[in-house]
């Protein structure tokens, strides 16, 4: 984020202190930002803390705000009374397939729209753009009927097929490919490389930022989705983590430590991914709004 750094430098240059004023040993902005940041952080901290508390500590009134020690009872309860490991694997399969297929099909489609002239390209592009404005609520009932007729309801297939490729992935990659210089591709093209080779050998290695945006946004939307799994899945062996957590909470709402332990399991992959690739995440989130 070089842009951020430069503005910060400018901001520092701008914030020249005026003489005659009492100066804090730190920027006065901390007085505003620190408490607010704390408010944002506390729920997550509380999530972690309460997942290692005993139910006795939670059920006391007023409940304890600090555990007497690290108690893994909640995690044990979750593993004994629910299929969290299974749901974890299900979520991993659904999100993993969706990410890979969005990258592959999004790149193929985006490249065709960006670089190739073919019959019907304009109409198709407009149609695809138009589908981005169709809200999911409008398509969910017929999509359920389509999946039912394919016999996919109650299988992971029902979750995977609708998210195999999104118009967003196609369009975002098309825009990125258009911004690349044509000359590199043309040289390879002249040397007799096929379109597919040009795409995979030359274009995609240059498209890391766009590909990571597609991967991150696809991962977030499939991993975090509840609505569609709720509609398409009935049997608990086919649950995703979100559906599993929501159902588990409904059935065991007095076992708060266990519910929070399940919640930690659900949230941790996203949190770790966010912390590990924060810059890419923030860039992707921003572009989801500005370019999508």
């Amino acid at each position: 984020m070089t842009a951020t750094a430069t503005t910060h430098r400018r901001a520092a240059h701008a914030g020249v202190s005026r003489p005659g004023r009492a100066r804090l040993p730190f920027s006065p902005w901390h007085l505003l930002l620190a408490p607010l940041a704390l408010v944002f952080a506390i729920p997550l901290v509380w999530l972690l803390i309460s997942s290692v508390m005993t139910n006795a500590e939670i059920n006391r009134f007023p409940p304890a705000l600090w555990p007497s020690g690290i108690n893994l009872g909640g995690y044990r309860y979750v593993l004994n009374n629910a299929l969290f490991p299974r749901w974890f694997v299900n979520s991993l399969i659904v999100s993993g397939v969706a990410v890979v297929s969005n990258l592959v099909f999004g790149a193929l489609g985006g490249y065709a729209f960006a670089r190739m002239r073919f019959f019907g390209s304009r109409v198709l592009l407009v149609l695809m753009l138009a589908t981005m404005a169709i809200p999911f609520q409008l398509t969910m009932i017929p999509t359920f009927l389509v999946m039912k007729s394919f016999g996919l309801i109650d299988t992971l297939g029902a979750l995977i097929v609708p998210s195999l490729v999104t118009p967003f992935a196609v369009f975002l990659l098309r825009q990125f490919f258009l911004s690349l210089p044509r000359e590199l591709e043309e040289a390879a093209w002249m040397d007799g490389c096929s379109r597919l080779r040009v795409l995979f050998r030359i274009v995609l290695p240059l498209s890391r930022p766009a590909l990571s945006t597609v991967a991150i946004l696809t991962f977030l939307s499939t991993w975090n989705d509840l609505t569609w799994p709720l509609i398409a899945i009935n049997h608990d062996t086919q649950y995703t983590l979100q559906l599993g957590l929501a159902t588990f909470q409904g059935k065991h709402h007095t076992q708060w430590a266990a519910v929070m332990a399940g919640n930690v399991i659900t949230v941790l992959p996203v949190l770790l991914a966010f912390v590990g690739a924060q810059k890419s995440f923030i860039r992707s989130i921003t572009s989801s709004g500005l370019k999508g």
């Binding site: 975090n224 559906l243 929501a246 949230v267 996203v270 989130i285």
Partner: peptide, 11 residues
């Protein structure tokens, strides 16, 4: 401030 945005509505 941004972390809560990536956490699912379910969680």
């Amino acid at each position: 401030f941004v972390v809560p945005f990536v956490i699912s509505a379910t969680a």
